[in-house]
Design a binder for these strands. Sequence first.
DNA 1: TCTTTCGTACTAATTTATTAGTATGAGACC
DNA 2: GGTCTCATACTAATAAATTAGTACGAAAGA
Lengths: 124, 124
Amino acid sequence: MRPRSTTLTEHELEIMKIIWRLEEVTVRDVYEAMLERRKIAYTTVMTMMNILEQKKYLKKSQNDRAYLYRPARPQSQVIKGMVRDFLDRVFNGSAEPLLVHLVEDRRLSAKDLEELTRLMRKNP
Amino acid sequence: MRPRSTTLTEHELEIMKIIWRLEEVTVRDVYEAMLERRKIAYTTVMTMMNILEQKKYLKKSQNDRAYLYRPARPQSQVIKGMVRDFLDRVFNGSAEPLLVHLVEDRRLSAKDLEELTRLMRKNP
DNA sequence: TCTTTCGTACTAATTTATTAGTATGAGACC
DNA sequence: GGTCTCATACTAATAAATTAGTACGAAAGA
C-alpha cells in the first residue's frame, strides 16, 4: 500500500499558492488563474480543490451559486512543514548541508547573507 | 496522464543514500542496510534498484553471482538538482525566503551563519 | 417559458510509486 | 548427483496523483 502524502503534492501546491494569494475563491477563480499558467480542465481544478478540502487545507462555505473556498492553514505554516519534510528526507534534518549546496550553486549571494544576519539579530 | 518524477522519489532517495555511502553494492547489501531502517522485502529492493538503473541513477555490471550496482551520478549533483527543484516548486526559485523560514523556525543558528560566511569567502 | 450557462456530483481512466510473490536456473554444499 | 541457497526475471496488486468527461439541476437571460 502506498500512504498518502502528508505534505502538498506538486499540483496541490500550485493551486494552494493561488488561493493563498487570492484569499477567498471559487473554483472558477482558481481555474482562470491556472489557465494563465497551463492548459487544464475546469473539473480537474474542482477535483483537486475537493481533495484539498478533504486534506484540511481548504475550508468550503456555501455562498451564492458556487462554493467559496479559503485556506484552512496559513501559508507560512504549511511551507515550514514542507521545508522540514524536505530537510528530513534529503539532509536528515540538518540545515547546514543545504546551505552549503546553495552557496556552491551560487544561489546565495553575500547580500542575502547580510540580510539574513540582520534578520537573525531581530529574531534572537 | 501523470508524468514520471524527474527527481528521486522518497524511497528511491532512501536507497540511493545507502548506495552512495557504500559505493558499490549488490541488491543484498542494500537489502540488509534497509532492514536496519524498516521492514522490506528483498524483491522490493531489487525492483527499486532496477527502476533506478532505468532512470540512469545506477550502473549495473555483471560480477560473480549477483549484479554489482554503483552510482551513475555523484551524490552532490543529484542533491543539488533536488534542492533546485524544491526551490523552484515552493519558492519560485529564490533561496532567500527559504532561509527566512529556516531562521524563523530556529533551524539556523548564528554559528551556522558564521560558517557559511567563511565558506562564502573561500568560494567567491 | 424556453434555452443557455454554470456549478457540482459522480464516474472513470491512466500512470506512477510502492510493495512483494512465484518461477526458474545457477552455483554451493554434502 | 541431489539438495539447498540465492539471484534474477517476470508478474501482479494496490493506492495515490492527475486528468477529465457526463449527467443533472439551478439560475440567468432572451
